[in-house]
Write a protein that binds this DNA or RNA. Structure first.
Lengths: 351, 351
DNA sequence: TCGTTCTGTGCAATCGTTTGCACAATGGAC
DNA sequence: GTCCATTGTGCAAACGATTGCACAGAACGA
């Protein structure tokens, strides 16, 4: 039953046609095909076809030192933000003849380091990282070793590295402006980890946007978290509510945090959006189906992945192409988690 | 800046120590290390460490004809069912020293064929398929070529192939029994594609379970779909409702179909679970957050992935190990989409 | 007719490892 | 002291492709 089936090599094809293996190699390579008599080309091609020849990528890789493989590192594939990005990456890579090997890091520096080491041992031609920290030695190492790298979703302080990220400032501004339009003035922010570019930039942008709208962002109404997770969102929102400070809306740094906030609001016996409006960030799949449907900032996830992959291909194929930071425009998606502020004072209800 | 940094090879290490490359190779391979004087072993190891030697997996792969890579094919990473499975697969593979390369097929036979071809060109040591059809020539090809394959989530009619799937019959029985317990007797089924094992088995199991509960499953209340998608769920449920037949509950073949049914119910001006109870299948992430939270059948996604990967490793490392079909037990998760049947007759409301 | 330039193909080295085989040195048995 | 195992290492040939170089033969001008 199990027939290991002897692999057909370039030599088999050569023998069949009666030419030298190198000739076959040249025929098979579109770039050198022109140097061979068209008659032979035809014979070689049909022989290869008949024999079912498939180039051995391993051998090619060894000789050319290119694996046509790229490593893709993400925090956690289980976070709905990433699958669309990954699809974008894979689709664009496939178009360029590359394949992706995936690694989950759970946002652990150690696993990240391991994963990069594994990928490099596998001779990946480049790396796409959705895991970058603001100050990331791993990124720095790759860059200084000349390994093509593109950051996606998060950027980094490391100089000279290309990135494809969302315009966080604009997104947050849209959220704040939307809330102000609904009459909210006391707005809280659940910030993401400040070691991540997204967490930090969005937090800063929150202060900026508030000022820009003529509102005051109180430090006491800005809660920090250690991870972009529902648990942390729940904790932060619960703290905010428990503090007794008065506010009618929460701008969360991402959708997962917002979902956590939902729980805290519910636990406190309040209603969203009746008592408390909430905005998210990312427009992950399915946040339109939760209760209430989440008002959030949509970022072009798939496109972001595609663009990152395209950029990487460029980097890999034309060395020394300059690093570029691309910013994609986000869009406010208004759903059911935000509503006009009530006349009744929230604090009055609670005190 | 970009320093290509010359790769350090086994030969560099050998030169440094003053031994032959083959000796270094033997030291580095735990299995042959015992044959070398322990003094030399120590020297080689420390030299390798100092020089920062990393084995070139491509070269190893060429020589040994093993890539320590496995291909993982899934329909669509964007479907929340799959990420947990993939995590399980990756974690178990990593433990065994393998890495995964992912491919999305969108359930298209052609893309599936391409993807398998690509993976095989990359010399994957084995394949994990979440894409199998009941009668799948691609699976058959792999098996007859002696390429280790494990099916996950879906099984196949192809003989002699290992699989790790859920006990669909039990799951459906649980759903039906739950509904009967709530007083429902006229129950509809939205079936998945009959070309997929899951779709077919669950449909058959629906008839069985109904009979088992002493209820009649009417053919008119079983709607078929062409894909496990929200769109198809919406269409099928809308058809069912439009048919004018009387029923108070829907057993959907998976969560996505159930979510589609939600929309149809809403469109028809009905309420779930007030007018219509709905059950899903899979317990995908986030279905506990939708409105109403979905009553569904939980399958151990992560474990399923892990188990499949473990099985594959076994197949790859001990050839001719027999094919096995593993079945995992599902669990009914009761949430808000199912309720006691109302006295009021649904049909009466509409006619 | 001879030399020169092209063109198309073959030759052989190479990428970094692994591994069967050969063989020197060591140690033990007699 | 001889001989035979045993042990540890080196040698060299793979694995399957790519590619610089060499070299026949054709084409061409003088």
């Amino acid at each position: 039953m199990n027939s290991p089936r002897p692999r057909v090599t370039i030599r088999d094809v050569a023998d069949r046609v009666g030419v030298h293996p190198s000739t076959v190699s040249r025929v098979l390579n579109p770039a050198t095909r022109g140097r061979i008599t068209s008659e032979i080309v035809k014979k070689v091609l049909s022989a290869a076809d008949e024999l079912g020849y498939r180039p051995n990528q391993t051998a090619q890789g060894l000789r050319t030192n290119r694996s046509r493989t790229v490593g893709v590192l993400i925090p956690d594939i289980t976070n709905p933000l990433f699958p669309p990005i990954i699809r974008g990456v894979e689709d664009a890579l496939a178009e360029g003849g590359y394949t992706a090997v995936l690694g989950n890091t759970d946002n652990l520096a150690e696993r990240e380091r391991d994963a990069v080491a594994t990928m490099r041992a596998r001779q990946v031609d480049g790396l796409i990282l959705a895991t970058a920290r603001k100050d990331d030695p791993i990124v720095a190492d790759c860059v200084s070793d000349g390994l093509p790298v593109v950051l996606v979703n998060r950027s980094s302080d490391v100089p000279g590295v290309s990135s494809v990220v969302n315009d966080d400032a604009m997104g947050i501004a849209q959220a704040v402006s939307h809330l102000k339009g609904l009459g909210h003035s006391r707005i809280a922010h659940i910030a993401g980890p400040q070691t991540l570019s997204t967490g930090e930039v969005r937090r800063r942008s929150f202060y900026d946007a508030m000022a820009c709208e003529g509102l005051v962002a109180e430090d006491d109404l800005v809660a920090e978290t250690t991870a972009f997770s529902e648990d942390e969102g729940l904790r932060a929102a619960a703290d905010l509510i428990a503090s007794g400070r008065e506010f009618t809306a929460i701008v969360a740094s991402n959708d997962l945090l917002a979902l956590g906030a939902y729980e805290a609001i519910d636990d406190a016996g309040l209603a969203c959006p009746g008592d408390m409006s909430v905005t998210g960030f990312n427009d992950m799949p399915f946040v339109d189906r939760v209760a209430p449907p989440l008002t959030t900032i949509r970022i072009p996830q798939y496109e972001m992945g595609r663009e990152a992959a395209r950029r990487l291909i460029q980097l890999m194929e034309t060395p020394y192409s300059p690093a570029r930071a691309t910013t994609l425009r986000p869009e406010l998606i208004v759903r059911g988690s935000t509503a006009r502020v009530r006349n009744v004072n929230l604090a009055a209800n609670r005190n």
